[in-house]
């Protein structure tokens, strides 16, 4: 709760949180804001925006409602972004903690695997993964997570290694604290803040990767996504640029919101820590 208060106190955090809250509300209430399948043909094709009150943002080449697509696309973008980031952080934390605590050969082995994943460009990895296994939401989530878990793993390991040597861990040993309690009460909570701050950036990257995959036609064809909408509009970019511009704006707003949120989170967490 105190973290939330600190977060709102920073301007970035307040704006980011506001944008994200609005997006989450849109995602949650998308079926109510625009009933029916967003992929259905709803009206005349290529209706320009701001002309028909029934289709405020117009329709695309097949007569699908652009506003409905954007509203429902929020769901896919946020769900895929959050799920992928969550999976990446979970894998990264487990690997990083194991490597940091175990040390020795286990550490070496795990870190070489991390190296391998960091060397391969994460988008290429996701692209290859989806092309081989096939496009569906869980596969896209996994593909993005595969390219994103290495950074949090490395950061967590570095945090554990640094905190393990702090005097307060030594003093916990001196008072006879059990090693498991030292790991979970003294080290882990203090290792987390930078990883959490990183996680917001991973969410933003995951949303962009998802959009890029959809743009290339490797997203789940049964759900509407901003990336696929932009790709759809690309063919007639000169005559109806709005088809690509509106989902593009939605994407930009979302990513900026996540970044601001992460910036605020970093500041709020930074202010709470003692060490310079």
């Amino acid at each position: 709760m105190r973290l939330l208060r600190d977060l709102v106190r920073t301007p970035e955090g307040a704006i980011g949180l506001g944008i994200l809250a609005a997006l989450v509300l849109v995602a949650l209430f998308a079926p109510m804001l625009s009933a029916g399948d967003p992929l259905r043909i709803a009206g005349r094709a290529l209706l320009p925006p701001f002309t028909d009150p029934a289709f405020p943002l117009g329709t695309d080449r097949l007569g699908r409602d652009v506003l409905a697509g954007i509203l429902h696309g929020t769901r896919t973008s946020l769900a895929v972004g959050l799920a992928a980031a969550l999976a990446a952080i979970a894998i990264g934390l487990c690997v990083g903690l194991t490597a940091g605590f175990a040390g020795g050969l286990v550490d070496e082995g795990l870190m070489r695997i991390v190296d391998a994943f960091q060397i391969v460009p994460s988008f290429l990895l996701a692209l290859a993964f989806v092309s081989v296994i096939g496009a569906s939401v869980p596969v896209v989530v996994l593909a993005i997570a595969l390219g994103a878990w290495a950074d949090p793993a490395r950061l967590t390991r570095a945090q554990v290694l640094s905190i393990r040597e702090r005097d307060y861990v030594a003093s916990a040993r001196v008072i006879g604290m059990h090693p498991a309690e030292i790991a979970f009460r003294e080290i882990l909570p203090n290792a987390l803040p930078p990883v959490l701050a990183l996680s917001a950036i991973i969410v933003a990257a995951a949303i962009l990767t998802e959009a890029a995959l959809s743009f290339l036609g490797l997203g789940d064809p049964n759900v509407v996504t901003w990336g696929s909408m932009i790709a759809e509009g690309r063919n007639i970019l000169r005559s109806s640029p709005s088809l690509s511009i509106f989902p593009g704006i939605a994407l930009v707003v979302t990513v900026v919101g996540v970044y601001l949120f992460s910036e605020g989170l970093t500041k709020a967490l930074g202010g709470r820590r003692l060490e310079p």
Binding site: Y168, V174, L274
Partner: peptide, 23 residues
């Protein structure tokens, strides 16, 4: 060892670093 540590304690130099910042 953990049990017997009660008999021998330590005070550290770094007054900031010797405490968990969340404590």
């Amino acid at each position: 060892l953990r049990h017997r540590r009660a008999r021998m304690q330590m005070v550290f130099q770094d007054v900031l670093g010797a405490f968990n910042p969340r404590a």
